[in-house]
Write a protein that binds this DNA or RNA. Structure first.
Length: 336
DNA sequence: AATTTCTGCAACCGCTCTAAA
DNA sequence: GTTTAGAGCGGTTGCAGAAAT
């Protein structure tokens, strides 16, 4: 038989918003077995959902450490610049914002940023035409602006990767990316909707209960060991060392960047790794990391990302030596 | 207050990619 | 080399709540 079979037959499969009961069942199951092997989740849990739906619910909503709503200015700028550079590759973009899901970023782009940019664009164009600027003049300005934007995007990425460096362009929101900050809880993110599905409080409560009763768990059946968090705050620390599944499935270089990010986040800024960090690598990363990828492989030297190569190539092609120099200078830092 | 329109977001759908048999 | 299952990605839809009339 050619082609793929559906992940489940649609007979008897429930669709639509998840109920608290379903969430509890799913979370309990993942508590017991760890994420993965989604195909078996519905049959093992009795959930009348298809495996895909279970995975989606977990990765986009139930997974601990997810930050929802209230995008910061910094995050917004990151998304705008990354979208300009990477296009609608939401998973790749999301990998630079570890607490955000691709779905969340995609929604935010479609509902807020696209309109905002359109408005800005038309507004500035009309204004300039009125001021007597020609199209070519505008194009030149636009190109310079784009160069600046690329520079700024790169700077932002560097800063996102180098958490202890003071920011010059976009002040890094430490609450967004810091490894040290363990005060944020998922349920502290404001959310307007009152429905169950939109209530992070409900989920957080669910998870806190789960975590409170969850013993440290060592999975010997998976490729690594993992521990469940006994403290909700650990979730936030944990997520910063998370490797999104997205990074493992793509063959192009753009998504090799997240591996580098994860590696960096696992290491001290001077490139060394403490003994404690080593312990954390095995006890913390394991739960959410790509199960198929060895931990040490992730902690290797950070390669040039596709993004950076693209920037260099593009700059070289257009004779933008200043951009190249800027980029190369910045690569002398331990980060690159 | 009732109705209509708009908005935001969770979830679904269809597709691709990867790895294993 | 081919087939198949599992997983992930991006586009789209549908619904609930908010805002406007």
């Amino acid at each position: 038989m050619m082609g793929r079979q559906p992940c489940c037959d649609n007979v008897g499969v429930k669709k639509g918003p998840w109920t608290p009961e379903e969430d509890i069942i799913l979370v309990s199951y993942i508590q017991e077995r760890g994420p993965g092997n989604w195909r078996s989740v519905p049959s093992n849990t009795g959930l009348l959902r298809c495996s895909k739906s279970c995975r989606l619910r977990w990765t986009n909503y139930l997974r601990p450490g997810i930050k929802r709503g209230n995008f910061t200015d910094h995050e917004e700028k990151m998304i705008i610049h990354l979208q300009a550079l990477l296009g609608n590759r939401w998973a790749a973009i999301a990998s630079y914002l570890p607490q955000r899901t691709d779905n969340d970023i995609k929604n935010y782009w479609n509902t807020h940023l696209k309109k905002k940019l359109k408005k800005d664009q038309s507004g500035s164009c009309e204004g300039n035409e009125q001021d007597g600027y020609s199209c070519s003049q505008l194009k030149g300005q636009w190109e310079r602006r784009l160069q600046t934007d690329i520079h700024m995007a790169k700077q932002a990425l560097c800063e996102a990767l180098s958490l202890d460096k003071p920011s010059t362009h976009f002040p890094i929101d430490k609450n967004t990316l810091s490894l040290e900050n363990n005060k944020i809880k998922p349920n502290q993110q404001g959310i307007a909707s009152g429905t169950y599905a939109s209530s992070t409080e409900n989920i957080s409560r669910l998870l806190e209960n789960w975590m409170a009763k969850a013993p440290k768990y060592v999975d010997t059946t998976n490729s690594g060991t993992f521990s469940l968090f006994s403290n909700p705050n650990d979730v936030v620390n944990m997520v910063t060392t998370t490797t999104r599944g997205a990074s493992s499935s793509c063959s192009d270089g753009a998504q090799s960047a997240p591996d580098g990010l994860d590696s960096l986040l696992s290491f001290n800024s001077d490139g060394s790794q403490s003994a404690d960090d080593n312990t954390n690598l095995t006890t913390e990363i394991g739960f959410f990391q790509d199960e198929s990828k060895p931990i040490l492989e992730q902690a290797g030297p950070v390669p040039f990302t596709f993004l950076e190569k693209w920037l260099f190539d593009d700059a070289a092609a257009h004779g933008h030596e200043d951009l190249i120099n800027m980029s190369l200078n910045e690569t002398t830092s331990p980060l690159f």
